[in-house]
Amino acid sequence: MFGCGLYGFITRKNMIAMLISLELMLNSVDINFVVFNRYLFPAQHEGMFFALFAIAIAAAETAVAIAIIINVYRLAKNVDINQITKLKF
């Protein structure tokens, strides 16, 4: 799942699709934590709590990213990363 997200992030040219791929990556990390907790260290719930907090953080990240992408769209009428290249070497 992490690999799928990584692949999507690198190949997609639409910023919204990139954001979706990032969500995939973050979710796979959450699952990783929960699975490690459930099968390796079932005595404590540290991984579960970490996953809970990571979900909240991921939600905040998405909100901020969506807001910024909407602003870019308003000004550039475009969310294709090949067109958004004004800042360059």
């Binding site: 910023m15 990213a65 870019v72 000004l75 550039a76 004004k86």
Partner: peptide, 8 residues
């Protein structure tokens, strides 16, 4: 516009 591109 530059500010938003940088932020994205």
């Amino acid at each position: 516009y530059e500010s938003h591109e940088a932020a994205a």
